[in-house]
């Protein structure tokens, strides 16, 4: 992908899948390539619109700084949360080694 001149007609499925942390098979990559190119070709219709000066609408009813009283509340039960972990060591969730040995 060339960031300074993005290709707006073809999705780089391999690049995007890596960003999305999905390991696709070759067949999947080919299939999604065709399907996503079709969708992207369709959504190009937004280029017909004159959108100069229009404020982007990221939310139906914008609200800012919604605060509540800073008082302790009961949180979720730790044991119930940990019970969902695929792998567990005592009160911790076990994952593969994150960092190289020093």
């Amino acid at each position: 992908m060339n960031e300074s001149n993005p290709d707006l007609d073809h999705v780089d499925v391999t690049y995007v899948a890596n960003l999305a942390r999905i390991e696709l098979s070759a067949e999947e990559t080919e299939k999604f390539q065709k399907e996503l190119d079709t969708v992207v070709a369709y959504i190009h219709q937004l280029n017909e619109l004159d959108l100069d000066g229009i404020e982007p609408m990221s939310h139906p009813h914008p609200r800012e700084n919604v605060l509540r009283e800073d008082v302790p509340m009961e949180g979720p039960d730790r044991e119930l949360m940990l019970a969902n972990a695929p792998a567990r060591v005592q009160d911790l969730i076990r994952v593969p080694q994150m960092m190289e040995d020093a």
Binding site: N2, S4, V11, V16, A20, I22, F32, E35, V39
Partner: peptide, 14 residues
């Protein structure tokens, strides 16, 4: 997967 890929694409740099 289709939607995650599409969403990742439209949010990606460039």
């Amino acid at each position: 997967k289709r939607r995650i890929l599409l969403g990742t694409y439209v949010l990606s740099s460039g």
